[in-house]
Deep mutational scan, measured.
Amino acid sequence: MPSETPQAEVGPTGCPHRSGPHSAKGSLEKGSPEDKEAKEPLWIRPDAPSRCTWQLGRPASESPHHHTAPAKSPKILPDILKKIGDTPMVRINKIGKKFGLKCELLAKCEFFNAGGSVKDRISLRMIEDAERDGTLKPGDTIIEPTSGNTGIGLALAAAVRGYRCIIVMPEKMSSEKVDVLRALGAEIVRTPTNARFDSPESHVGVAWRLKNEIPNSHILDQYRNASNPLAHYDTTADEILQQCDGKLDMLVASVGTGGTITGIARKLKEKCPGCRIIGVDPEGSILAEPEELNQTEQTTYEVEGIGYDFIPTVLDRTVVDKWFKSNDEEAFTFARMLIAQEGLLCGGSAGSTVAVAVKAAQELQEGQRCVVILPDSVRNYMTKFLSDRWMLQKGFLKEEDLTEKKPWWWHLRVQELGLSAPLTVLPTITCGHTIEILREKGFDQAPVVDEAGVILGMVTLGNMLSSLLAGKVQPSDQVGKVIYKQFKQIRLTDTLGRLSHILEMDHFALVV
């Protein structure tokens, strides 16, 4: 994948999101292997301009796509893939009243899908469409860049269908997702969380590099694949309309690839034109409109599966009536509230959605109805927002919020430890010299600072030695090549209790 991002070429006709291997024109390309080798690009942008032909009021008969309808489940399912879809609609009884809503608040519980998330729908649909058009064949390999849930859905379907599955996901995604993927037989590649989507090191860039190296491999490409919004247009939206008897006044959905909100909203605009569509985008993402909503100094966020630093091709923002931004604290607070007060075992993005819903639905009156999409299960986040310690460490809970008995030293300040200034190293000294210094002084790690004293990161003896043994660096290389740029900081005025929580999850903390 090139470091400079080429513009994806656009073909003359058809839909841009065809499933299957992508040609340089962004659509299915038939021909000899030699032709494909000559024409197939190194990668295709996940934010390529959409060429979708959908228009409100256009006859369904003019759609270029294969459409399906929700099917009634048999008493005995032939395999677990038949437990994807037909998820329950559940009334939220307490939270709406707590925040003064007059309307009825309903939750579409997508964590009841077989793999635990709304992404099971698009995973199965992308595979079925690729099999139907002859792209996927027995023994082929599926590769997908994902925040985890699409990966789980694909790995689940691949396990049943017999495909090899490789999932490329950023490091910030939970260990629970990784464990589930491994249990399903998927191979996992992790990428830096802070890598831009168009960087060769991003999950998108690495996935395309693997595709170019592995024979008979395919990126189904949830960011561009029409099967993504079509899955929701054909099934999720129809289920909502049936469950609500066609009567709903507002739908609120958090947005990642945009397939969920695009597919549902398009069908609702056709069948229930008075329904307002509300999009939820986390602070630090750029999906919301108008652009002024996205202006923030924050560039990272903890909530998973929603928000991006690019506009995915499948996201149709014209069908969203209003956007709201959400933050991590309210997302996790509301997710825990949904679990504790409503018994809905949902993930953090569901918290984002409901946090926005109780604001947006203030305009609705008694007798009206708001539906929220709860995308995934708490299963993926047992060591994250479900953990009091994690919430404390991230600053989303305060010590006084917890009532468990603490040891005698818990409320003492870090400054009472009488710490001395640490050994520091410059980023320009060599790895070999740094190892000598650390061994001589008896230290395992040291902060790396520039000549102005600005902290650049941390270097550890173990990481340097393993990097040297693996051949990633040489003793003569500058130590700046092996620094940890993500590390926890703590102030002298913070409590030892807070430091204790940090050290339970990290090997060190830097006192500043």
Rank of each mutant, 00 (worst) to 15 (best):
T5I: 15
P6S: 15
P6Q: 15
A8W: 02
A8V: 14
V10G: 10
V10D: 04
V10E: 09
V10T: 09
P12I: 02
C15E: 09
P16A: 08
H17A: 05
R18H: 13
P21G: 02
S23E: 15
S23C: 05
K25L: 10
S27M: 13
L28A: 08
E29L: 02
G31M: 02
E37H: 07
E37C: 08
E37D: 10
P41L: 14
L42W: 06
L42V: 02
I44S: 02
P49C: 10
W54M: 08
P59D: 05
A60P: 02
S63M: 02
H65L: 04
H65C: 02
H65A: 02
H66N: 08
H66K: 04
H66D: 15
H67K: 12
T68L: 11
P74L: 12
K82R: 09
K82I: 08
T87F: 02
V90M: 05
R91K: 15
G100D: 12
L106C: 15
F112W: 02
N113G: 10
N113H: 08
A114L: 06
S123D: 02
R125F: 10
M126W: 07
E128C: 02
E128M: 13
D129G: 02
A130G: 10
D133Y: 14
G134D: 13
T135W: 15
K137T: 07
G139I: 05
D140C: 06
D140G: 07
T141C: 12
I142M: 09
E144V: 08
P145M: 02
N149M: 06
I152A: 04
I152W: 02
G153R: 02
A157E: 07
A157V: 08
A158C: 02
A159N: 08
A159Y: 08
R161G: 10
G162Y: 09
R164M: 02
R164D: 02
R164G: 02
I166W: 02
V168I: 08
M169Q: 15
M173N: 02
S174I: 02
E176V: 02
E176P: 02
D179S: 09
R182E: 07
R182L: 10
A186S: 02
R190F: 02
R190C: 04
A195P: 07
F197V: 02
S199M: 02
S199D: 14
S199F: 07
S202I: 02
S202V: 04
H203R: 06
V206S: 08
A207Y: 02
A207R: 02
W208G: 05
R209L: 08
K211V: 15
E213V: 10
I214V: 07
I214Y: 11
P215S: 07
H218D: 02
I219C: 02
I219N: 10
Y223W: 02
N225R: 06
S227A: 10
S227T: 12
S227G: 02
A231W: 04
Q242P: 02
Q243V: 09
K247L: 09
L248C: 09
M250D: 10
M250T: 02
L251G: 02
S254K: 05
S254A: 05
V255G: 05
V255H: 06
G256R: 02
G258A: 02
G258M: 07
T260Q: 12
I261E: 06
T262E: 02
G263F: 02
I264L: 12
L268F: 10
L268Y: 07
E270I: 06
K271I: 10
C275G: 07
R276L: 11
